[in-house]
């Protein structure tokens, strides 16, 4: 008998702090698998955001820099420009990228920085206790919207992928989900593409990943995966928004 599935080398052999069923763990593993497959662990630098994923530097074996809230794309820009032979990625949640960090992500994408952005959207602020995020869905109950998000006061949920896809500096942009096995496979493919456009010097690459927050959604982890399909996917459609013509398969 041989091993057909095991922990990727780039993923640290530790217990994560994530809640039971939180799909951050799946996304971490996919990033680690892609780093392993591309053989780039020794030259990869991650930039951690603020939020639950702030501790990502404990879980992936590459080098890391921690950025101030929302500023990961700006910090990553500095790293990439001074060390252009490195593979630089940010790992940001929606409270980080779509709220306090909106300026940084828009301008990094617009400049076509050679970065890979892993954007984890779970429609809520996880770490701080489940408050409304810019991505919270209309009518969604959170700690700060006990009657559900009222779009006449709070605006509509922000579709970052669609917004950024209009910028010429963006080379690869996709939205995926990790709520079932087939989607997990697609998510891995998209993450790989987003790293490859950087390695091939084609421009900015980002993957928006619909993720779960069973604790703050108040749902069992399995029900939370179903909620992604029922509530999130209709508003945040999955697919590739921008694909470069000349991305090479390895």
């Amino acid at each position: 008998m041989k091993v057909v599935f095991e922990r990727p080398r780039a993923l640290s052999d530790v217990t994560s702090h994530y809640c039971p069923g939180c799909t951050h763990g799946i996304i971490h593993r996919l990033v680690a698998e892609v780093i392993d497959e591309l053989g780039i662990l020794e030259r990869t630098i991650g930039v951690a955001s603020v939020g639950c994923s702030v501790l990502a530097y404990n879980y992936l074996e590459c080098d890391w820099q921690q950025a101030a809230h929302g500023r990961a794309p700006a910090v990553a820009t500095g790293i990439k420009r001074s060390l252009p032979d490195r593979v630089v990625f940010t790992y940001q949640g929606d409270g980080d990228l779509a709220s306090i960090g909106t300026a940084e992500i828009v301008h990094a994408a617009n400049r076509g920085e050679r970065l890979t952005v892993i954007y984890v959207n779970n429609a809520i602020y996880g770490m701080t206790g489940g408050q409304m995020a810019p991505t919270t869905l209309e009518g969604q109950v959170t700690a700060t919207t006990p009657l559900g998000r009222d779009v006449s006061r709070a605006g509509h949920p922000m579709r970052m992928a669609e917004m950024l896809a209009t910028l010429p500096g963006v080379s690869y942009l996709a939205r995926v989900a990790v709520n079932k096995p087939a989607n997990i496979m697609r998510a891995k493919k998209a993450i790989k593409q987003a790293f490859m456009v950087q390695i091939d010097d084609l421009g900015f690459g980002m993957v928006e990943i619909l993720s779960t927050c069973p604790t703050n959604w108040g749902l069992h982890p399995v029900k939370a995966l179903e909620w992604v399909d029922e509530a999130m996917v209709p508003y945040y459609p999955l697919g590739e928004f921008k694909v470069p013509g000349e991305v090479k398969e390895e």
Partner: peptide, 13 residues
């Protein structure tokens, strides 16, 4: 193993 968020499972075949 692919859906496990905590990489708990190793698969042999």
């Amino acid at each position: 193993a692919r859906v496990c968020p905590d990489c708990v499972i190793t698969v042999y075949k």
